[in-house]
Simulated assay, not measured.
Amino acid sequence: MHSCCQFWCTPNFHFWCIVSYRLQHAIDLLKEHITHVHFLKLVGTATNPIEGLAMIADLKPGLIFLDVQMPNLTGIEILKLIGNDCRVIMTTAYKEYALEGFEHAVVDYLLKPIPFLRFLKAVNRLWTIQNNIRPVNEQDHYVFVKTEQKGKLLKIDSRRITYIEGQGNYATIHMNDRRKITAYLKLKELAEHLSSKGFVRIHKSFIISLSHLTAVEGNMVRIVDEAQSIAIGEAYRKEFFEMINTKLLSVPPNNPTD
């Protein structure tokens, strides 16, 4: 058996979720986790992945909570069928499927039995992603980069890039699912291409996504889910802080209590 649920995070923010079909206690555990998160709401279940696909097509979900091993269709096969139309958090007892799942840009990969704190981290990551992404045209979401493998181009959803680190003629692209993609590109080329997509260069070696920027602390910035801060290079500080000041909210000096 597997179940489906819909999440509500903000107005008009819809999520369908498919979870484990075989073990009832795994389903019950996820149901219990959902009850403890204020922006999640369980609205229904399906016992067959084909029926689940029909529900997904009908409801046009924002998220699928997807098991890997299911009858008739595997979770990986469902990922290929639904494409990039919705977010996916995968759940399974088999960690060997994680790499293939991340190749389909899943939000997270949870191993059963799923502890509540790990579950909470996954759904909070989704909350952060959703609330920081500004709508853009569909064709603007994706970029293609040359990889270390000769002749291979990789398609990347630019909304999921948190920051980029330059290393000579190569760049390491950090994704919000913890993947690191090495691309044969100079940081200058990336900065020019991504500036219109909400990215800014803050150091000779770093470009950051403003959507994933969580704080500015002196001459350092913090990126969501990253333990280490990134320094703002001296040559980039003036332009960066001028941009930040355009978004700064402050109380007018003559109206301190308004």
Rank of each mutant, 00 (worst) to 15 (best):
H33N: 07
V107D: 02
I89W: 03
A57M: 09
G101Y: 06
I34A: 12
D157T: 04
G75I: 02
K112Q: 10
C86L: 06
G44M: 01
V107R: 03
N124E: 12
V37Q: 06
L66F: 03
Q130I: 14
K95T: 12
N132P: 05
L99A: 14
L153S: 09
K121W: 00
N72H: 12
L40A: 08
L73Y: 01
H25T: 10
L99E: 14
L154H: 08
L99C: 02
H36Y: 12
I89M: 03
Q24V: 10
Y94A: 04
N84F: 11
I82Y: 00
A54E: 13
T91H: 06
D140M: 13
L99I: 15
K60D: 09
G62Y: 00
L81C: 02
L120Y: 14
E148K: 15
L23E: 15
L53Y: 04
L153E: 13
F119P: 07
F65H: 00
L29N: 10
Q149T: 14
L117H: 14
V88E: 00
G151T: 06
I64V: 12
V106S: 05
M90N: 07
G101I: 03
K121N: 12
Q69G: 04
I164N: 04
L81E: 11
V43W: 08
G75N: 02
F102R: 02
D85I: 13
K121R: 14
N137S: 12
Y109S: 01
Q69H: 12
V37S: 03
D140I: 09
F116Q: 04
N72F: 13
L120G: 07
N124I: 04
C86H: 02
F65I: 11
A122H: 02
I89P: 07
L29S: 10
D108T: 01
R118H: 06
V143C: 13
R22A: 11
V88F: 00
I76H: 07
F119S: 02
N137V: 09
Q24C: 08
R87T: 09
L42K: 11
F39A: 08
T47V: 10
D67M: 00
P49S: 08
E51L: 12
P61Q: 06
E138R: 07
M90D: 05
M55A: 10
Y142I: 11
N132E: 06
D157S: 01
M90C: 12
I156T: 01
F144I: 04
K146F: 09
D28F: 01
G62N: 05
K31P: 00
H36V: 00
N48I: 03
A98P: 06
R118S: 04
V123D: 03
K80L: 06
K146P: 01
N84A: 13
K152F: 11
I78M: 11
V88W: 05
T128K: 15
M55G: 03
D28V: 05
A54Y: 04
L42A: 13
V43T: 15
H33L: 05
Q69F: 01
Q69T: 08
E96Q: 15
A122I: 03
E148Y: 01
